[in-house]
Computed example of a mutant assay.
Amino acid sequence: MGANWPEDWARLVNEYIDFEAAAGYPDEGPRMGGDGRPSEVGEFLTGGQKWHSPPKIRKLGKLGDKGSYTDNWWMWWQSLQPAEREVVEETGMMTMPMEMAWGKLTKMSGRNGFLQVMASLFWWGLEEFRDGHKDKSGWAAAVGDVEGILYGVLRSGEVQ
């Protein structure tokens, strides 16, 4: 699953594997915040985490559709970012300054960290590719943003 998705996804998966390797592949780690997190992620975490049975996204929507998976995902992702990243009002996307204090993101390895973000993007991708949506730009933007952050965290040399 996901093997035939765009190259951006493969690059993100590789960055994630490199991040976990740099952290020493811990099982446990600090809990990632849940502010604004899509309800499907919380339900998965409290419902037994059956990886072979991903949750069905009830309302995929897009950025700006209040209550949609996409809008909630972006709110959650924004809540996890370094203070240097600012939301651009016109697009809802975030800036990517050259210098950032990576802080808590350097510690987000293990099952309680970036794995949640990766799983949530995977489920989003399943919806996009299963239903044959023509416009996958929202998902692609999220994949690219997470890849950029993981790249920055890895290059900072601060992974814990």
Results as ranks from 00 to 15, higher is better:
35 D>P: 04
41 V>H: 00
49 Q>E: 10
118 M>S: 05
158 E>V: 09
48 G>M: 01
144 G>L: 00
34 G>Y: 05
100 M>D: 09
99 E>Q: 14
89 E>N: 07
81 Q>N: 09
77 W>F: 12
83 A>G: 01
15 E>S: 15
69 Y>G: 02
110 G>R: 03
128 E>S: 06
84 E>F: 00
90 E>D: 13
56 K>R: 13
149 I>K: 06
129 F>Y: 13
62 K>T: 14
122 F>V: 00
151 Y>D: 15
143 V>W: 02
158 E>Q: 14
127 E>L: 04
144 G>Y: 05
33 G>V: 02
61 G>R: 07
31 R>Y: 13
77 W>Q: 01
13 V>F: 06
21 A>F: 10
4 N>F: 07
8 D>E: 14
36 G>F: 00
104 K>H: 12
147 E>D: 14
16 Y>Q: 00
8 D>I: 05
31 R>F: 12
34 G>E: 09
13 V>E: 09
136 K>M: 11
60 L>T: 08
140 A>V: 14
146 V>F: 01
53 S>H: 13
154 L>D: 03
96 M>T: 11
47 G>T: 05
5 W>R: 04
113 G>E: 00
7 E>S: 13
60 L>Y: 08
122 F>D: 01
125 G>F: 00
89 E>T: 08
124 W>N: 01
38 P>L: 04
32 M>P: 00
101 A>Q: 13
100 M>V: 13
103 G>Q: 01
116 Q>F: 03
109 S>H: 07
97 P>E: 05
125 G>A: 04
71 D>N: 10
62 K>C: 12
31 R>A: 12
149 I>E: 04
93 M>L: 14
26 P>F: 04
124 W>T: 01
42 G>R: 09
25 Y>E: 12
153 V>E: 03
148 G>L: 06
144 G>F: 01
59 K>C: 11
14 N>E: 15
17 I>H: 15
52 H>P: 10
160 Q>H: 11
77 W>N: 05
3 A>Y: 10
21 A>H: 10
17 I>A: 15
62 K>W: 11
20 E>D: 10
99 E>H: 13
150 L>M: 06
6 P>A: 02
16 Y>D: 02
28 E>G: 11
133 H>E: 12
129 F>E: 07
101 A>V: 10
110 G>K: 03
23 A>D: 06
38 P>F: 04
17 I>F: 14
54 P>I: 02
40 E>W: 03
147 E>F: 08
24 G>K: 06
83 A>R: 09
59 K>N: 15
50 K>L: 13
93 M>H: 10
112 N>I: 03
152 G>E: 05
11 R>W: 10
60 L>P: 07
134 K>A: 15
130 R>C: 04
113 G>D: 00
145 D>C: 09
13 V>C: 08
45 L>E: 07
38 P>I: 02
148 G>C: 07
140 A>Q: 15
143 V>I: 09
62 K>N: 12
17 I>C: 14
122 F>E: 04
113 G>A: 06
92 G>V: 01
159 V>S: 00
139 W>A: 01
4 N>E: 12
3 A>E: 14
56 K>V: 11
104 K>T: 09
113 G>N: 01
68 S>L: 03
113 G>F: 03
85 R>P: 02
145 D>Y: 07
58 R>Y: 07
39 S>M: 09
133 H>F: 14
82 P>I: 03
82 P>Q: 03
18 D>K: 15
120 S>D: 06
141 A>T: 12
85 R>W: 11
147 E>W: 10
104 K>E: 11
61 G>S: 08
119 A>H: 11
26 P>D: 07
20 E>W: 06
